[in-house]
Simulated scan of single mutants.
Amino acid sequence: MEVEKYLSRIGFAGSAVQPSLELLRSVHTCHLLAVPFEDLTIHSGGEVRLDLQLIYDKIVNKRRGGFCYENNGLFFWLLTHLGFHVTMMSGQVRNAITQMYGPPFDHLILQVTVEGRRWLCDVGFGSSGFIAPLSLDTDGLQEDGHRVYRIRRNLEMHVLESQKEENRGEDGEWTEIYKFTLTPRRLEDFIEMCQYHQNSPSSIFVCKSFCTILKPFGRLTYIGRRLITTMFPSEATDGKLEVTTLELKDEEIPEVLAEKFGIVLSSPLIPKDDPITPPDVQY
């Protein structure tokens, strides 16, 4: 496992001699622009194992992506080797169907302390994720591209919320994304939930084959038999968020994955876009 090869994989061309907030922001954004958030291993006959060497080989050597345990697990390794003080943390994602939270270890996120401040990092969440690290030392509004975020604290629990640009302001409508504590965790702590997300009908990763990646203009997302292009608000879109969907035939999907996401699978993909079964237990 080589730091320089990882940095090359994510297209980072700056100086990584000393930990700094500028470096943290740069590698965080570079990772999101280069490494997809995807679950295609599950739908092509494979299994995700929380072994850093295997994850490195998949993401760096094979130029694949992964879900949170893979992307953030490997990002933890990179930041540690760049000299940052990094802590793994457990997140619980809010279910869009039930509006309830998942169990502990549902999501892996990172806390990074640099230049005397604490930052939330997450390169493994997809379309609702933030582009640059968010400060853990404020509950105020934090602008990030076309979204606004805040981290609200309730006793020991922290809640990440987002707000669309048209609703911007303290009194605007906020959407809860996930909650977490600052308790340090290890990669091994997430093994049970990693298995759950590969086998449960209540997991989006089981029910839907997908791949999504951040682009300078917006986001590209493959799901089931669809390719979705999201354009961020700009002059070209008259200041509006623009979403277009292209229906795909099964035989077109491998070419789309290769051309749009740089992914070539070693085994055939079985496209899937099934409804998600709400979990029996709520948190």
Rank of each mutant, 00 (worst) to 15 (best):
V206S: 05
K240I: 06
F12S: 05
C194L: 03
A16H: 14
F12G: 00
K240W: 06
R168A: 15
Q111V: 13
S44V: 02
P36K: 05
A16V: 06
P19A: 10
L269G: 10
P133H: 03
S135D: 02
L7W: 09
H43G: 03
T183E: 09
S234L: 07
F180H: 02
K179D: 00
T244D: 14
C211T: 08
I253S: 12
D39Y: 01
M1A: 08
T87Y: 06
Q111G: 07
T138W: 11
F105K: 10
V35F: 11
I223M: 10
V112T: 12
R186T: 11
F190G: 06
F180I: 01
E156L: 06
H28N: 14
G239A: 10
R63P: 00
W77T: 09
L74E: 08
T221E: 00
S44T: 09
Y222T: 02
I276P: 11
H197M: 04
L241C: 11
T212Q: 13
E192Y: 06
E252S: 04
R118C: 09
Y196N: 14
L108W: 07
P184R: 08
Y196V: 13
Y101K: 13
L120K: 02
G91S: 10
A34K: 15
V148N: 11
G66V: 15
L136K: 10
R226P: 00
L24G: 08
K164L: 09
R225V: 01
D280N: 06
G169F: 01
M100A: 13
V86D: 07
F210S: 14
D106S: 10
P104M: 09
M193V: 05
C121G: 01
V264E: 13
F75K: 02
L227R: 07
E143Y: 03
V123H: 11
W174G: 07
D106Y: 15
H85D: 13
R94W: 03
M193S: 13
G262M: 03
D39R: 03
Q142V: 11
P133S: 05
D274E: 14
K5F: 09
R168K: 15
I131T: 12
W119F: 15
P271C: 13
P104Q: 02
L136E: 03
F105E: 13
K58T: 03
S202G: 07
T183F: 03
A236Y: 05
D106E: 09
E173T: 11
D274C: 10
Q18W: 04
E259C: 01
L40E: 12
W119I: 02
L160S: 01
M89L: 12
L136I: 12
F76L: 11
R153M: 06
I97K: 10
V3S: 01
F180G: 04
Q99S: 07
Y283L: 12
